[in-house]
Simulated assay, not measured.
Amino acid sequence: MVLVSSKYLLDRAYQEHFAIGAFNAGNSEFVKNIITVAENLQSPVIIQIYPLEYELMGSKIIKYVLEAAKVSNVPIAVHLDHGRDLNDVLRSNKDQLNSVMIDTSAEEFAKNVAATSEVVDICHRLGIAVEAELGSIGNRFANDSSNMGRIYTDPNSAKEFIEQTEVDFLAVSIGTVHGPYPSGKNEIRIDILKEINRALKIPLVLHGGSKNPDQKIKEAIENGIAKVNISTDIKLPYFHAIKDTVIEKPTDYEPWIMLKQANQIQKDILKEKILLFGSNGKASEYLNDFRHLKPYFPYEGEKVEFY
Rank of each mutant, 00 (worst) to 15 (best):
V205P: 02
N223E: 03
E53L: 09
D191N: 14
G179A: 02
A220F: 02
V31K: 00
E166I: 06
I221N: 00
D95E: 11
S157T: 10
D289T: 04
I217K: 08
Q48P: 07
I247E: 13
K282R: 15
K260R: 12
L41E: 14
I242T: 03
E133G: 06
V89D: 01
K211T: 08
D244Q: 03
S6G: 08
K216V: 00
H178N: 05
E53I: 12
Y286R: 01
K294G: 12
H17Y: 12
D252L: 11
L200P: 08
M148N: 13
H240F: 13
Y14P: 06
I49K: 13
Y253Q: 05
A115K: 05
S28H: 14
F306R: 06
Y296A: 14
S157M: 15
L9Y: 13
L170Q: 09
F18V: 02
N87Q: 05
L97R: 03
G184P: 02
A199L: 03
K70H: 12
E195C: 07
L9E: 10
V2Q: 14
I274S: 01
V304Y: 15
A241D: 07
Y14E: 04
N98Y: 03
V130R: 08
I196H: 08
E53A: 09
M1E: 07
M101T: 03
I49M: 14
G83E: 01
V130P: 04
E160S: 08
F109C: 02
I196L: 13
S157Y: 15
E254C: 09
K235F: 13
F18Q: 01
Y64R: 11
A241K: 13
L134F: 05
I174H: 06
D191Q: 09
